[in-house]
Simulated assay, not measured.
Amino acid sequence: MTLFHAVVTVDHHQAQVLQFDAEHVLAQKVKSHSHHTKQHGNTVRTEHEFYADVCDALAGIPEVLVTGSRNAMADFRHYVEKHRAPLAAHIVGWETIDHPTEGQLIAFARQYFVKYDRMAGTPIPS
Rank of each mutant, 00 (worst) to 15 (best):
M1S: 12
M1C: 12
L3C: 09
H5E: 13
A6E: 06
T9F: 01
T9Y: 00
T9K: 01
V10D: 01
D11L: 04
D11A: 05
H12I: 00
H12K: 03
H13L: 10
Q14W: 01
A15S: 10
Q16T: 12
Q16L: 10
L18V: 14
L18Y: 11
Q19G: 07
A22S: 08
H24S: 14
V25K: 04
V25F: 02
V25M: 07
A27L: 11
S32K: 14
S34C: 11
S34F: 10
K38M: 09
K38A: 13
H40I: 05
T43K: 15
T43N: 14
V44S: 07
V44K: 05
V44R: 05
R45T: 08
T46C: 07
E47T: 06
H48M: 02
A52Q: 10
V54R: 00
V54H: 02
D56C: 07
G60L: 09
I61L: 09
I61M: 08
P62I: 03
P62W: 01
L65D: 01
V66K: 01
V66I: 06
T67M: 07
R70V: 08
R70K: 14
R70S: 10
M73D: 01
A74Y: 03
D75H: 11
R84Y: 01
A85W: 13
A85K: 08
P86N: 03
A89L: 13
A89K: 12
G93H: 00
W94R: 06
E95R: 12
E95P: 04
E95L: 09
I97G: 03
D98Q: 14
H99S: 10
Q104E: 14
L105A: 04
A109H: 01
Q111F: 10
F113E: 01
K115L: 15
D117G: 06
R118E: 15
G121K: 11
G121S: 08
T122N: 13
S126L: 15
S126E: 13
